[in-house]
Simulated scan of single mutants.
Amino acid sequence: MSTVTTPANPAAEIADAMRALEARYGTPWSAPLPAWNDTLDTLLAHRSVRNYADRPLPEGTLETLIAAAQSASTSSNLQTWSVIAIENPERRARLAELAGGQSHVRAAPLFLVWLADLSRLEAAGARSGASVEGLHYMETLVVGMIDAALAAQNAVVALESLGMSAVYIGGIRNQPEQVAAELGLPPRVLPVFGLCVGYPDETRPADVKPRLPQEVVLHREQYDAPSQAAAIAQYDEVMGGFQTAQGLSAAGWTVRSLARWRSRESLHGRDRLRDALSALGFELR
């Protein structure tokens, strides 16, 4: 359990916290600071890491991460998620191709595929002769996807606190039927996303990517749309500077984000997710 302690050097701790917050937003931080701790340090330092050291994970790592994942909130304690750990290099390579040829899926020593899993409750209903009609509605799949996301993020916080790094792989939804076949999934189980896990390659470090200003995502009492345009324009400048520092074109957030949704083809196969869900046994009434 995280505790708040009196720092040996309060001024140094405040300075470290300010640097972390300014790195997260790419702009000066002016809000008051609450008490600070190692958990906040870990959360603010998060970055997506795609380059991994050739270093095995300590024994017991997987089980510890799953314990952290299972400590996340879950709707009504239904626990409508599962995860498959992939360590076999050949299977990682096949999944890398199904996810769009992402080489870091091959490079990471551990690849986790997080699942929205309604099959477990359906089987429990069959064993007990109970009706499970509610499993066939969109709401229940949404619950499973939320449960999986909450569990995975708990695992990410845990692994980062242990000096490891990760990156989420949404491309696991590019070809969900093929992924399901590769993993032997029963009906009514959806591969929601993957997660590469490993120690970061210190020779190819990743930087903290600035996020949208809080005035864009934080609304007080009611949604405030008119105030967003100016803050997003400022963020485009911040992201342009970050992209330039990364050796990328300074397109900013707006241009890159809109390009992600410019056409059906830009979804890389995920435009047919409704059909895939049907093929995987989801009725979604």
Score class of each variant (00 low, 15 high):
residue 62 L to Y: 14
residue 4 V to W: 12
residue 101 G to A: 00
residue 145 M to D: 02
residue 147 D to L: 04
residue 240 G to V: 05
residue 99 A to E: 05
residue 215 E to S: 15
residue 116 A to L: 06
residue 232 I to M: 11
residue 55 R to Q: 15
residue 194 G to P: 12
residue 274 R to I: 07
residue 257 S to I: 00
residue 201 D to M: 02
residue 131 S to E: 11
residue 106 R to T: 13
residue 35 A to F: 14
residue 8 A to N: 10
residue 223 Y to L: 11
residue 59 E to V: 11
residue 265 E to A: 15
residue 202 E to T: 13
residue 71 S to D: 12
residue 74 T to M: 12
residue 242 F to V: 00
residue 7 P to V: 05
residue 122 E to Q: 12
residue 97 E to C: 03
residue 144 G to M: 01
residue 281 G to N: 09
residue 125 G to D: 13
residue 57 L to Y: 14
residue 62 L to D: 01
residue 114 W to S: 00
residue 276 A to C: 13
residue 28 P to L: 01
residue 100 G to R: 00
residue 260 R to S: 15
residue 112 L to N: 01
residue 117 D to L: 02
residue 224 D to C: 05
residue 256 R to M: 10
residue 186 P to C: 14
residue 137 Y to C: 04
residue 146 I to C: 03
residue 96 A to M: 07
residue 281 G to L: 06
residue 223 Y to P: 08
residue 165 S to R: 10
residue 89 P to F: 07
residue 88 N to G: 01
residue 282 F to I: 00
residue 80 T to W: 15
residue 150 L to C: 12
residue 220 R to L: 13
residue 209 K to S: 01
residue 147 D to G: 03
residue 156 V to C: 14
residue 132 V to M: 14
residue 42 T to N: 11
residue 4 V to R: 14
residue 221 E to M: 08
residue 282 F to N: 02
residue 69 A to V: 02
residue 114 W to A: 02
